[in-house]
């Protein structure tokens, strides 16, 4: 029994398309996009802006219906746990809730008793290094700290799959590097299934087990790159020749897509 469930992929997305239409214009965000993600895999999706990677993540999260195609997600053993939790960009933490309330939000919505909720939230706040700010409101925090709250909020609700939508995209380079390290460290502890959308190739190679490259307008899958870098990883891996080679190979493949996307934007 356990053996068969292991064999099934955690996520199987088959022939997903998504068309946005407002009556006059039709925008095809995704076309025939298929993807399988294994249990415990850290999958990164890279593509030029407008390639529908955020749409795909929202379809996975159930926030957006697909125009066609199917999504299968293997549920875990505990039906009380959510299938997915999303980490948005850092401004998505609720400004009207304290750090503690933000991190405990998913648990609260699931009806977890208050005492248990506080314990879990507190332990996650400690793990992202925000114990001093437990009762602070987001406006008192820096961008990087806010995103730590966002990550803790997603992890505290202990989802089957963690979805991350360019979580570090709006942060400055140094904060981003710090948080990349932190994401690696936290992920190595649990090895949760992660789908991570980013526009940074370095970030994708550093974090991911596989990198999926998408084309733009409409978004389709262009190539998949396995990242054979050893685990557990840390930032040192960025100094290796292998890392540089992988990054360059993916960039070579991406370059044409970026140019195409820019040309398309320029023409309209």
């Amino acid at each position: 029994m356990e053996h068969t469930s292991r064999a099934l992929p955690k996520i199987r997305a088959s022939h997903i398309s998504k068309v946005f239409s407002n009556g006059k214009e039709r925008v095809e965000a995704l076309r025939d996009f298929s993807l399988e993600v294994q249990e415990g895999e850290f999958l990164c999706i890279v593509g030029p802006s407008g390639c529908g990677k955020s749409s795909f993540l929202r379809i996975l999260a159930g926030l957006l219906p697909a125009s066609s195609g199917t999504i299968e997600i293997q549920p875990g053993e505990d039906p009380g746990k959510p299938l997915t939790s999303m980490v948005f960009q850092e401004y998505a933490v609720f400004p009207w809730k304290t750090v503690l309330e933000n991190v405990g939000f998913g648990l609260q919505m699931r009806g977890v008793p208050k005492a248990e909720r506080l314990t879990i939230a507190q332990s996650w706040i400690e793990r992202v290094g925000l114990s001093k700010f437990i009762h602070a409101y987001p406006h008192q925090l820096s961008g990087g700290m806010k995103q730590r709250v966002g990550i803790a909020r997603a992890l505290a609700s202990d989802p089957e799959i963690l979805l991350m939508d360019e979580p570090l995209g709006a942060l400055d380079a140094q904060t981003r590097t710090l948080l990349q390290e932190e994401i690696l460290r936290i992920w190595e502890e649990r090895r949760k299934t992660v789908v991570y959308v980013t526009h940074s190739i370095e970030e994708a190679v550093l974090l991911g087990d596989r990198v999926v490259l998408m084309t733009a307008h409409p978004g389709t899958q262009k190539a998949v790159f396995p990242i054979p870098l050893p685990r557990p990883r840390d930032l040192k891996v960025m100094a290796t020749a292998e890392f540089g080679e992988l990054t360059y190979t993916i960039w070579e493949a991406l370059r044409g897509e970026v140019l195409k996307a820019m040309k398309l934007l320029g023409e309209t």
């Binding site: 997915t84 939790s85 999303m86 998505a92 909020r153």
Partner: peptide, 26 residues
């Protein structure tokens, strides 16, 4: 901000609780 609604829904809020925890304070 639509992302607040998305976050609220993604973390399991709907109906009155989405209103109370997200829409009203927002």
């Amino acid at each position: 901000e639509p992302v607040y609604l998305e976050a609220g829904r993604n973390y399991g809020a709907s109906g009155f609780r989405l209103f109370y925890h997200v829409i009203l304070p927002g």
